[in-house]
Every structure is written in structure tokens, then in C-alpha cells.
Amino acid sequence: MTDGRRRAWLLIASFGASAALLKPVQDRVDARFRQPSTVLDVLYFGSPRVARALALGYNSLLADVYWMRSIQYYGRRDEAARRPVRYGNLVALLEITTELDPDLLDAYRFGGVFLAEPEPAGAGRPDQAIELLDRGIVRHPLEWRLYFDKGFTYFWFVKDYAKAAEAWLAASRLPTAPNWMEALAAMSLSRGGAVETARALWERQDQESNRQDVKKNARNHLISLRVDEDRWTLEFFVERYRKKFGAWPARLADLVRVGLLKYVPHDPSDTPYLYDPATGEVRLSPATGVLYLKIPYDYRAAFMEKLARAFGPN
């Protein structure tokens, strides 16, 4: 073998060895020095105005980058758990996004939801969500959806029905607003109308939205409302059975046998509800296809009273 050829083989061998060693060495460094205890939670720009000044005319692109960062920041639940403050920087990210692109309506609308959702799903800061939506309303005073979302935040997360109605009434006065907005405001103001308004809200979102994820979320909420009401109805009749026969029924079918019910309802995915004959409790089966979302209203007592009125005394 000539010297030149030997050198070439040596070069190839050393190149191959380096390439083969690259991954194990990097993995070793990662394992030894980069413990994933906390996640780096860096904003890069503290002030939205500084970000705008430094964008050098590429505001729109930078806004997209910050919007995507906001979505990822919110969406990565596993990472959020390892941050010093779960969603501490979310509001700043959304402020930078909307300062860079004041017309990005989704940043106000979905950003508001990200901020308002209670922990652990969101930042649990409906006050910041309302501030963000208010900034959007100042910039887009004719955009009824922002008023709708503000009302929604007051209604759903703050439970201030008067403020919600105020926002929806303001929306109903806008020329582009749909005509059901006024009815929504009236419903919110009506006494005990919280659940009915919630149902109307989700039905509207299901019908009006052109986004499949929004529709799906609305349907899941409607289904969850139905599941709660099914369970409570069954528990109401289980209790009646106990009063009549002195013991819990052995199974739900007993309610039909004694004439209290015409049939035993299944959940919306057509899976039978689970019944505990020791406590009389009815719940969803683990085999269910329903994605149950907890409804933040405790209207069980009011619902039971309604059933008692409808079916008379024992």
C-alpha cells in the first residue's frame, strides 16, 4: 500500500470513528450536565415596545414567532410543570405578540382562554385575560367576537354574570353582531340562568365556529352537561327507591322493574353508567367514549329540586 493510500484510509477511519463517537459523547454530556430539573423560561424581550422597535420592519414575522411560542408555552403541559412558575410568562408573550401585530385577533381570543383557564390547564388569571381582551377591544372596537369572549370570561371563569351581560349587551349594539347576542345577555341577567346560559353558549360555539377544535370542545361541554344531568336523575330515582323499599337497588334495572323509570339511560357514547349499590352513586364507566369536562357549577341541588317538583312528593 502506498503512503498516499494509507493516509487516505487513515483519514477515512478517523472520520468514521469520530462520527460513531459523536452521539455517545453528546448523550454522555446531556446525561451528566443537563438534568431536566427546570425548564429555561426566557422571554428575550422584557418589554413589548422594545420588541417592536427591534423588529426592524419584520414585526409580522416576529409576531408569528411569539404567537407560536405562546401556543407551545401553553400547550406543553409536561414542561409547564417543571417551570418555576407554570404559566408565569404567558401574559408577557401574548402582550409582545399583540404589540407586534395588533391585528392578530386569535392572539386576543385564544390567548384570553389560555390565561383564564384555571390551573393546571391554564394560567388561572381571568383578570389578565380580560385586560388582554380589553386591549383588543380598544384596537378593534367593532369586533363583536372580542366582546363575546370578554363576556364569556366573566361568565365562565369569574362568574360575574352582570359583567358578562354588560359585555354581551355592548356586543349586541355592534352592527356586525349576530342577533342572539342580546338574548344571551338577557339570559345571563336572569335569575339562576347560569347553566342555561352555559348551555346556550356552548350550543352557539358549536353552531357558529368554523374551527373543528372549537366545535369539538363545545360538544364535549354539552355532552358533559348531559352526563351530569343523567347521573343526577338516576341518583334521584335511586334515592326514591331506597325511601320506598328501605335499601338501595341492587342494579339500575330495578328502577325500571318497579316502574320508577321506563328505561335506564346510557351515556352519550352508549356505554352504561356504573352504579355502586353500596352508596347509590352513579358515575361514568371507565370504558366510556365520553371526554368528560368538569362543569364549574354546582347546580346539583337546584337540579334535584327541579326533579322533585316535576315528579311530585314520594
Partner: peptide, 13 residues
Amino acid sequence: LTLGHTDKVIVDL
């Protein structure tokens, strides 16, 4: 990566 507005991001990019 984004929520809606895909074509807006493509134009920006």
C-alpha cells in the same frame, strides 16, 4: 405549530 392563520404565517415568512 400555530392555531389557524397558517396562510398568514406563510406570507409573513
